[in-house]
């Protein structure tokens, strides 16, 4: 059987790593300003990345489907 190359590929891995880097860079977001509706940056930044991670997962999913 010929070896099928199917998987995330480097682009897929890149898409997946974006939300990870965003929430791991603690020194960059461990601050109050800029606030959003009175919510400190530390909190709204991390909450924001929950729905954004969905977007990036969807992009990675697109890579997998393309390679199929």
């Amino acid at each position: 059987m010929a070896k099928k190359k199917r998987g995330l590929g480097w682009q897929g891995v890149l898409w997946l790593s974006v939300p990870c880097v965003a929430v791991l860079a603690v020194p960059l977001f461990n601050r109050i300003e800029p606030e959003l509706f009175g919510i400190p940056f530390f909190y709204w930044w991390q909450i924001l990345w929950v729905p954004l991670s969905s977007v990036f997962l969807f992009m990675a999913y697109g890579r997998i489907r393309k390679e199929k």
């Binding site: 998987g7 995330l8 897929g12 891995v13 997946l16 790593s17 939300p19 990870c20 965003a22 929430v23 791991l24 461990n30 530390f42 909190y43 991390q46 909450i47 990345w49 929950v50 991670s53 990036f56 997962l57 990675a60 999913y61």
Partner: peptide, 24 residues
């Protein structure tokens, strides 16, 4: 306080990780 909020980055990290590994 803030330290307890680690549950949030934790849930953001979980899905990219399992997405890459567990379907295999």
């Amino acid at each position: 306080g803030a330290l307890g909020f680690f549950a949030l980055p934790y849930t953001v990290l979980v899905y990219p990780l399992v997405f890459a590994v567990l379907p295999k």
